[in-house]
Write a protein that binds this DNA or RNA. Structure first.
Length: 741
DNA sequence: TGCTGGTGGATTTTT
DNA sequence: TCCACCAGCA
């Protein structure tokens, strides 16, 4: 019996089809990772392919690690020379070797979202863009989309002809690129873009990698964007042994440029492509799978497929509606505790939600209830202030051209170097077209620097000292030396006590991450380098730190959950306005809502044994209470698959409730209004509000709606309005500026 | 130069 | 609710 006997017919077909383009349409839980790992094993063992010639691209580092491990178990040896990594890591590795061909230094730095924003601010100041009109975020996302589509600044400008706004963006884009280059830095999108440029312009480099990667596999193919597709096509251009695995129903990154056409048009792009569908689900019970199928069937324009399972029916899907989000968190915590009491492990439970902000309530509840948990996502560890500060030191030491890093730390900890001084240095650098740090090294050339010169001098001396230190000593020692000589931790201690402690702990964690990096280099016989560490840091996602061995409840967004599975899954916050989000409900592009639905599909299909879906009637969002209806996606799940739970039965709000129904309620209330309500009327009238309960009003942002309640709240009146499209909102009269219609 | 407090704006999802 | 920015003062 061979390892391939355990596969089903389609899976085997996919494994044995090794030459030529192959598209595997793998439904959720259909064993695609199994197929990929067995395929790699088959290539090595049966086809005699050198592991060195195999490239496998995954979505996260975690997935890459798992794939390597599983291949390891199958083939015994050689798996370490397979190149398994994410798109971004793959590109960085290529660029580190060859980017000098494009005029960058090979030790370029990678800018994260924070750095991008800082740089964008500079750019806008430089070319006189009013950031109140053109927001940094919007500019960056426009540029990012352009890069995803491989549009250069020059091309952008051409396309912008006649469009004033676009012309502005084109100018910004051009300058932004210029600044990145001056800083010898690349942003995330650049990693892909520059690699593609490199392969397109340097035939020998292309040839080298085409020869090297004779067999290429891409996981989560539905989430690739245009650059990523171009990258893969270039690499596979010679041997055409490209195998992509994806599921159009699980495409959830359109907002990031993922191009679903990559999957829908694969067959056109690669003419003799073979297509194999994996439709048997091994993960979930049939109740769960049927629910998922029912939801996703509401999307139009998907590749036809029907997922089935011969797993049993299993438990019904539990549906609970609560008054408040607190109740929801309470219930879920209690439910998990019950399961654990009955012998389940914490880590068999995952709570999935739409937005990171929702994690807070659960966290509070779990801390109080002493339930071990792990939140994935939110603020990235490496995005924390103290970590970024220390990394900026490393970046400055590593790449003197990274102005952003230098400017970040020049006065951190405080050295009495103020904004005026920094600006003078900056101006002088700009005039002479040199870097910021370079300008610092020739202080006598900077006018009006006067009293600050001494301070700047000693800063430069310190950095030069670190550079010398870095050349001789290990990374760990360098970090220790930086903390010591700058007095960073001491300063923290002297500051406020409140979060200083956790910041110091983070710094300790950073130090152990450095040590871990050095160790892993030693394992692989590589030399630990500063750039290497910085790069590792730049490309990790929070999900990579998820450890299946640890026994904790896992909390994360639906996006992070892609590719994972858990016995017990809770989908929390299933409310219209939250999930699907307000943005997509009001969007006029139906595609947006479909993407949310796919996200829901992803969520449901994470569950193996039980699925609990829940929502709250009332929820605090950004400090204001919102009243939401249950999610429209819940209504798409056939009721016979669901169970509402005896204790909560009477609380369940039936999907019949709509604006009309609520309006009727209000009129009833009004007709039988007690003295109290009557009094409210008079009070509001005194105040000069020209609307009362039952009136229709208009809001600047939310449109028209019906006033359902007015209560006295301190110095203002709290008005509850049922909007036609935006749902129920509670707001203060003086802010809301409602107009009677 | 640096701190403080007030104000206004904002949030979807992330390699 | 939280964060970034700005004005005003030490």
């Amino acid at each position: 019996m061979s390892i391939y006997d355990t596969l089903n017919e389609q899976q085997r077909e996919a494994v044995f089809h090794t030459d030529g383009p192959l598209l595997i349409l793998a439904g959720a839980g259909s064993g695609k990772t199994r197929v990929l790992t067995h395929r790699i094993a088959y290539l090595i063992e049966e086809k005699g392919v050198n592991p060195w010639n195999i490239l496998a691209i995954t979505f996260t580092n975690k997935a890459a690690g798992e794939m390597r491990e599983r291949v390891d178990n199958l083939v015994g040896f050689g798996s370490e020379s397979i190149w398994v990594s994410t798109f971004h890591s793959t590109c960085v590795r290529i660029l580190r070797r060859h980017i000098d061909r494009l005029g960058y230094d090979n030790n370029f730095t990678i800018y994260d979202a924070d750095d991008q924003k800082t740089l964008m601010k500079d750019v806008c100041r430089l070319i006189d863009i009013d950031t109140k009109v053109y927001k940094e975020r919007n500019l960056l996302s426009a540029i990012s989309s352009a890069k995803d589509e491989l549009i250069t600044p020059a091309e952008y400008e051409l396309n912008a002809a006649g469009d004033y706004g676009k012309q502005k963006i084109a100018k910004v884009y051009l300058e932004y690129e210029k600044q990145l280059r001056a800083n010898n830095a690349l942003d995330f999108d650049d990693l892909l873009v520059k690699t593609v440029q490199l392969l397109q312009t340097q035939p020998d480099v292309l040839e080298y990698y085409q020869e090297r990667f004779r067999y290429i596999m891409v996981d989560e193919y539905q989430d690739t964007n245009t650059v990523q597709f171009k990258f893969v096509s270039l690499l596979a251009g010679k041997y055409k042994n490209l195998c992509v695995v994806g599921d159009d129903d699980q495409s959830i990154y359109k907002f990031r440029g993922a191009n679903i056409k990559n999957i829908l048009n694969f067959e056109q792009e690669f003419h003799d492509a073979k297509v194999i569908k994996l439709e048997q689900n091994y993960r979930s019970t049939s109740n769960i799978l049927n629910a998922a199928n029912a939801v996703i069937s509401n999307n139009v324009g998907r590749k036809d497929k029907s997922l089935w399972t011969d797993n049993g029916e299993g438990e019904k899907i539990q549906f609970r509606q609560f008054d408040t989000a607190y109740d929801e968190a309470d219930f879920i915590a209690e439910d998990i505790r019950k399961h654990v009491k009955d012998g389940a492990a914490y880590n068999e439970h995952a709570i999935l939600y739409r937005t990171n902000a929702q994690s807070r309530l659960f966290e509070e509840r779990f801390v109080a209830g002493n339930i071990p948990y792990k939140i994935v996502g939110g603020i990235n560890f490496y995005a924390r202030r103290e970590i970024k500060d220390l990394l900026a030191y490393l970046k400055t030491i590593d790449n003197g051209k990274d102005d952003l890093a230098v400017r970040r730390i020049i006065n951190v900890p405080k050295r009495g170097i103020g904004l005026t001084t920094i600006n003078r240095v900056q101006e002088s650098a700009l005039e002479r077209e040199i870097g910021f740090y370079e300008a610092l090294q020739g202080l006598d050339l900077i006018p009006n620097i006067g009293r600050s010169a001494g301070k700047l001098d000693s800063f430069v001396a310190l950095m030069e000292y670190f550079k010398g230190f870095a050349a001789k000593e290990t990374l760990s020692d360098l970090m220790k030396e930086i903390i010591e000589k700058t007095g960073y931790v001491e300063n923290l201690e002297a500051e406020d006590k409140e979060d200083a402690q956790s910041r110091i702990e983070n710094i300790e964690e950073l130090q152990s991450k450095i040590a871990a990096y050095e160790e892993s280099c030693a394992d692989m016989d590589e030399k630990p380098t500063l750039s290497g560490f910085l790069e590792e840091v730049a490309l990790v996602a929070d999900i990579d730190s998820l450890d299946e061995e640890q026994d904790y409840v896992i909390l994360m967004t639906l996006h992070s959950a892609k590719g994972l599975e858990f016995p017990h899954v809770y989908l929390a916050g299933m409310e219209d306005g939250l999930f699907p989000s307000y943005m997509t409900i009001t969007s006029d592009d139906n595609e947006d809502l479909e993407e949310e639905r796919r996200l829901c599909y992803v969520g449901i299909t994470r569950a193996e044994k039980d699925l609990t879906v829940s929502c709250a009637r009332r929820r605090m969002i950004r400090g204001e209470t919102q009243y939401n209806k249950m999610s429209r996606f819940l209504k798409e799940i056939p009721t016979e698959l669901m169970e509402t739970g005896a204790a909560f039965e009477e609380e369940v709000e039936m999907p019949t409730q709509n604006a009309y129904f609520q309006a009727k309620q209000v009129f009833k209330q009004k007709a039988f209004s007690t003295g109290k309500t009557a009094k409210q009327f008079t009070v509001t009238k005194e105040k000069g509000l020209d609307y009362t309960i039952g009136d229709r009003v208009k809001h600047m942002k939310f449109g028209e709606g019906l006033v359902t309640d007015i209560t006295e709240g301190g110095r203002d009146y709290e008005v509850t309005v049922q909007f036609d499209t935006a749902g129920v909102k509670k707001m203060f009269a003086s802010f809301a500026r409602l107009q009677k219609v």
